Amino acid sequence: MHWRDLVLAAAAVAPGVNAAQLRFSCAQLVVDRIDPLVNPGQAPSPHLHQVVGGNAFNVTMDHSAHDMASTATCTSCMPLEDFSNYWTAVLFFRARNGTFKRVSTYGNGLGYTQSNGGQTVYYLSSGKVQAFKPGFRMTVGNPAFRTQAQAKQNPSLQFTCLATSSTRSGYRFDFPTGQCQAGIMVTVRFPTCWDGQNLDSPDHQSHVAYPSGSKCPSTHPVTIPQVFYETYWNTQPFNDKSLWPADGSQPFVWSFGDPTGYGNHGDYVFGWKGDALQRAMDANCQSDLFSDKVNCPTLKLQTIADTNKCTMSPKIKENLSGWLTELPGAMKVA
């Protein structure tokens, strides 16, 4: 199910049934080579990430001790009670001469053009859901995947070549092979079923699952909100074909060395304050899908201009500007 189908499905439930479509902008918080979920305590982590959300993001975020809602002093997301962190890998352009340049994110063209990059975040439901508990975290996708058959094991991570900022068709599991006039959109959609017991698991995935049809499996009986990211990557500066590989192959690579796109993945750490997310889900909040309006009176909101003010300095000091001779962390393209 792709973006438009997902939204329509959430909207098509029977009257009186909870159906939340909470959508908001999160500006870029930091681009840094740390990963408190997969590589806790390791600084630097193997590859670079782009992160949005609360500024309590750190090298280590132990779920039993790290209260993000009380530790953070700001959030780069529109809901002032959302101190969660949402992150993905970073996109790079690899030129014909073998050098690399970081691709920046930019504001979603459907209402959030004033955002200083980052992501658009959705919390969706088509019925009653239980909000995440403090300490909850999860990942989706696998950075080791390099084939379409592997990527199709999880059809919830996709790419869209943007002809315009509102393009919502032609999605695929790998990097687009042609020039994308308005950039590349990457979508990451997380599972909606939880085992009801574990806030995390050793692989950060086994405690959650996707539904079978419309029902959660008996092993994961608790329905949770659908967390969904859209990231706009500004690939327009790299549409000069003279910079592309001589054989015409696509030139983009993830920061972990993936030249295919099949290793697309995302990370999530819950950090909403109190019962704010549960209130929003119970209130069936219906954000405008084509503007910056977040129609959710139960939440305290800030403007996009204010979200742009919440930033962090990278923990790892390294050169990320200009043309680089190798990916950060000396990650090999393979």
Rank of each mutant, 00 (worst) to 15 (best):
F238S: 01
Y123F: 13
P40G: 13
L289E: 10
M312Y: 07
V17C: 01
L301D: 06
V90H: 04
L243I: 11
K215D: 14
R279V: 00
T192W: 04
Q119M: 15
P36Y: 10
T105Q: 06
N58M: 06
A151H: 05
F256Q: 06
N97H: 11
P155M: 02
V208C: 09
T73L: 01
L6S: 13
C310L: 08
S201A: 13
K215E: 14
Y210N: 14
S45W: 01
N39L: 14
Q197E: 06
G274H: 04
F173E: 07
A65M: 09
A9N: 09
L22I: 08
L91E: 03
F159L: 07
Y268E: 10
V59L: 08
T219M: 04
N308V: 04
Y106R: 10
K101P: 00
P211G: 09
Q42M: 14
V103Q: 00
P251Y: 03
D288I: 05
K317N: 11
S115P: 00
Y262F: 15
N284E: 12
V52Y: 02
F145Q: 15
T192L: 08
A95N: 10
H2Q: 08
H47R: 07
S287M: 06
S206V: 11
A280F: 09
E81H: 02
Q153E: 12
Y171V: 03
G329I: 07
M78W: 01
I316A: 00
P225E: 07
A149N: 13
F228H: 12
S169P: 00
